[in-house]
């Protein structure tokens, strides 16, 4: 009986995973080999949707994959490095001041997505009514078409900055758990500032840091709502990553068959990333 109890506790979760992950994935696999459209009926087309994607018959596919890598890399660096810097800075300020600044930095996370997107749209609005262009006008500098010139940079910033609060919170807790005597011993041995952070603190928070890296990578790979609201993926696919392209194919053009094939590639990519990071970051050993 004792052996069964843990499984009984796990059962509801297993059922949820089955219902909301395994069954949808199996449905996606089925739909990806059909030409299903709006009517939700489709004929079997074999691997046609996959060959359309991998043979680059779809002329924007290479662009989409490159965008995905750029977006993923850019947003991840901002989130992890930004979160780590803030966690380090706020924990060194002591509980009260550190807590205050952490609270301020948590505001973006507490902002509703539509408001967050609207703030970025307003800031980079290409007309004279945009925040940055208003500042430029005051400085007698010509307005800029921010959204056309730097669409990818804008979506990387908007998403990357939003990831910082979560990273900062987890890492602050991890840094706060490092015994003070370890840091003190390092100081006595002559280590200072960045050396302590890089040589002592980071190795000690390696597990949460690795977890956050994987977590945010998967999150950036699969979410697109801010991109959809801010740039719509344009101009000319300049800020469209794979997740947004999958959404627009499946739900805007209602090409559910092709959209499912794209979604399957996303799922496979996620799995590859988990396994690669697990190995690279030494999570298997830690666990």
């Amino acid at each position: 009986m004792k052996r069964i109890v843990p499984y009984l506790f796990l059962l509801p979760l297993i059922l949820l995973i089955l219902l909301f992950y395994i069954i949808p994935v199996l449905s996606t696999i089925y739909i990806s080999v059909t030409d299903m459209g709006r009517s939700l009926r489709g004929d079997f087309v074999g691997l046609k949707n996959f060959t359309r994607m991998f043979s680059m018959e779809d002329p924007v596919m290479s662009r989409i994959l490159l965008n995905t890598l750029l977006y993923l890399g850019g947003a991840l660096v901002i989130t992890i490095v930004g979160g780590l810097l803030l966690a380090n800075a706020t924990t060194s300020l002591g509980n009260r001041a550190g807590g205050f600044f952490r609270l301020i930095w948590f505001l973006p996370r507490a902002t509703p997505p539509v408001v967050w997107a609207f703030l970025w749209i307003w800031a980079f609005d290409p007309t004279k009514f945009g925040l940055l262009n208003m500042i430029l006008q005051h400085l007698n500098i010509p307005e800029k078409s921010w959204m056309s010139l730097y669409p990818m940079l804008i979506v990387i910033l908007a998403n990357g900055v939003l990831g910082i609060p979560y990273t900062m919170t987890i890492l602050s807790a991890a840094l706060g758990n490092i015994p003070a005597e370890i840091i003190e011993a390092a100081r006595i041995d002559g280590a200072k500032g960045w050396r302590i952070t890089i040589r002592i603190k980071i190795p000690l928070i390696w597990w949460p840091l690795s977890f956050l890296t994987i977590w945010h990578t998967l999150s950036f790979l699969t979410t697109f709502q801010y991109i959809l609201m801010i740039t719509g993926g344009g101009p000319f696919y300049a800020s469209t990553p794979l997740a947004l392209y999958t959404y627009s194919k499946a739900f805007q053009n209602m090409e559910l068959g092709y959209g499912s094939a794209l979604a399957l590639v996303l799922i496979l990519l996620s799995m590859i990333i988990i396994l690669t990071f697990r190995k690279l970051l030494g999570l298997k050993k830690e666990a």
Partner: peptide, 16 residues
């Protein structure tokens, strides 16, 4: 015609 017309906000388009 603005080069970035495709990224204008609807409210701004109607305002103009």
């Amino acid at each position: 015609l603005p080069a970035d017309m495709g990224s204008w906000d609807w409210k701004v388009i109607h305002k103009y």
